[in-house]
Design a protein around this nucleic acid. Structure first.
Length: 491
RNA sequence: GGGCCAUUAGCUCAAUCGGCAGAGCAACGGACUCUUAAUCCGCAGGUUGAAGGUUCGAUUCCUUCAUGGCCCA
């Protein structure tokens, strides 16, 4: 029974206290990490190390104990990796030898002594002292199979991280990705900014918000679904290159691709258009892939993704023609589109305005085919209330979405900066809302006012960081790249 | 929201047609000064997710619920 193990370990903590030692001490100082020791001495043989007698102090969790009678091996894990500690009876003071008996797998210990190599070649620390620094009361999962139960892995991510090295690596990669992105934009003279998560009017995307309440102001507030409108206000204010890398909240279903809170990068650059952003996006993803993997060809599930530049480009209309079987001269023909929608089992097709219908067909027919990075361009105006019209075709906008592995990774456009047009678009969205579209964009009078002061010609983009991390780390579920994905509370 | 699947010891998994609930690892006791999932001997550990039903008898069959996973919308 679990309580049996816990009480056994509590007894060991008590035994330590009886010896006048704190089972939760905090006075041990580490001089080296495991990785530093491996890096410094990987080429040193047994005799060389004996001569050098390099003294180190390492601290970490005991991942394995192998007792050989008068010799005990610990495998220690610290933030950098693992190192073996060898506890020889004739190298340790009596008090430390007795302490070995109080150490369990899972405890945090400190070991000091010279770096050595065993006869079998294992680089180790020969312990001349042993401290027990943190008593672990709960047993770790089995050493070979680890922890695999998905629910437990997410609920007790700390255990998942202790025992599953690949999980640790995935989250380390996530950190490096975020860091690379920040550096990428800082190098291009972008300013990192933070804008409100709590908003009295939400906007910037088509999604349902979380609603909350401010008590002392007695005010309804929304969790933001996107930072877009605030970032464009900053561009109006003269911050011509800004980015925000932060959380968005959308009140929708949970799946392998959706978590209610997710991390997005949004960036805005004045005097640029959506074509410029395609080039910038290629550069960002290509550089990131090389930075992480040293190559631009990486596995994702059964596929090999290529981030070699340039990425494929496919207009929405081309997609309708090539993948949905819509005749080339009928991409704006409602009857032809409805026929395609029926073939593809698009629900509620008859209720949709033209642009929504085109996109629903495109998504049903083409989305899953877009495995290699592909810029889908030239979206219908109806579904793009914040994008600039195309000069050549006012029914379309200067917009692209980047698809990869059948998923939307990024969404970008030349920004609509005509306040009159923007007001009309919001009005059209209000009309959609009246028809029952809960995801239609709400009117934002202050945003119109900001545009009336004049926003320079600008292009902006949003990139889903969680999905990007999934691609870069070959993970099939968004929950594998979010430390604590949303779950129902335990019973 | 719909369908399918899973839930058994701390962890990973068994259990024949409905017939005494088992193993490995971890733990506990012991042997061992070069192990690498150490090895060897011994011992212990269970409200089979919850509630109800069928049955002489339920881990197994049925119903409802809970949690999670996958697929679909």
């Amino acid at each position: 029974m679990e309580d049996t193990i816990i009480s056994q370990r509590r007894a060991k903590a008590d035994a330590l206290r009886a010896r006048g030692e704190d089972p939760y001490a905090n006075d041990f100082r580490v001089t080296h990490t495991a990785a530093e020791i491996h890096a410094a001495h990987s080429g040193d043989d047994l005799e060389t190390l004996e001569q050098k007698a390099v003294q180190v102090a390492v601290g970490g969790r005991v991942m394995a104990i192998r007792r050989m009678g008068k010799l005990v091996f610990f495998v220690l894990a610290d933030r950098s990796g693992q190192i073996q500690a060898n506890l020889f009876q004739d190298a340790l003071p009596a008090a430390d030898l007795e302490r070995i008996e109080l150490v369990d797998v899972g405890d945090i210990v400190g070991v000091a002594g010279p770096v050595m190599r065993t006869r079998r070649g294992e680089l180790s620390v020969k312990a001349t002292s042993l401290r027990l620094l943190t008593k672990s009361l709960r047993p770790l999962p089995e050493k070979w199979h680890g922890l695999t139960d998905v629910s437990t892995r997410y609920r007790q991510r700390y255990v998942d991280l202790i025992v599953n090295e690949d999980v640790r690596r995935t989250f380390q990669a996530r950190g490096r990705i975020v860091s690379y992105i920040r550096r990428f934009f800082e190098d291009r003279d972008y300013l990192e900014v933070e804008t409100p998560m709590l908003q009295s009017i939400y906007g910037g995307a088509a999604a349902k918000p979380f609603v909350t309440h401010h008590n002392s102001m007695d005010m309804r507030l929304f969790m933001r679904i996107a930072p877009e409108l605030n970032l464009k206000r900053l561009v109006v204010g003269g911050l011509h290159r800004v980015f925000e890398l932060n959380r968005n909240f959308r009140n929708e279903g949970i799946s392998t691709r959706h978590n209610p809170e997710f991390t997005a990068l949004e960036f805005y650059e004045a005097f640029a258009n959506y074509e410029d952003l395609m080039a910038l996006t290629e550069e960002l993803l290509h550089g990131l892939c090389i930075h992480l993997h040293g190559t631009d060809q990486i596995p994702y599930g059964e596929h090999t993704l290529s981030f070699a530049q340039p990425f494929r480009r496919l207009s929405v209309y081309q997609g309708l023609i090539e993948h949905a079987g819509v005749p080339a001269d009928a991409v704006e023909d409602r009857d032809a589109l409805l026929a395609a929608a029926q073939r593809l089992h698009v629900p509620k097709a008859h209720e949709m305005a033209l642009g929504y219908l085109q996109m629903a067909i495109f998504e049903a027919a083409a989305e899953h085919l877009l495995v290699q990075p592909t810029f889908v361009t030239d979206f219908p105006l109806d579904v793009s209330p914040l994008s600039r019209r195309k000069d050549a075709n006012p029914k379309l906008v200067d917009r692209f979405e980047l698809y990869c592995a059948g998923r939307e990774i990024a969404n970008a456009f030349s920004e609509l900066n005509d306040p009159i047009d923007q007001h009309e678009r919001f009005a059209a969205q209000a009309n959609q809302r009246d028809k029952g579209d809960e995801e239609a964009h709400p009117m934002d009078d202050d945003f119109i006012r900001a545009l009336e002061y004049g926003m320079p010609p600008t292009a902006g983009e949003g990139i889903g960081i969680d999905r990007l991390v999934m691609l870069m780390t070959n993970q099939p579920s968004i929950r594998e790249v979010i430390f604590f994905p949303l779950l129902r509370p335990e019973a």
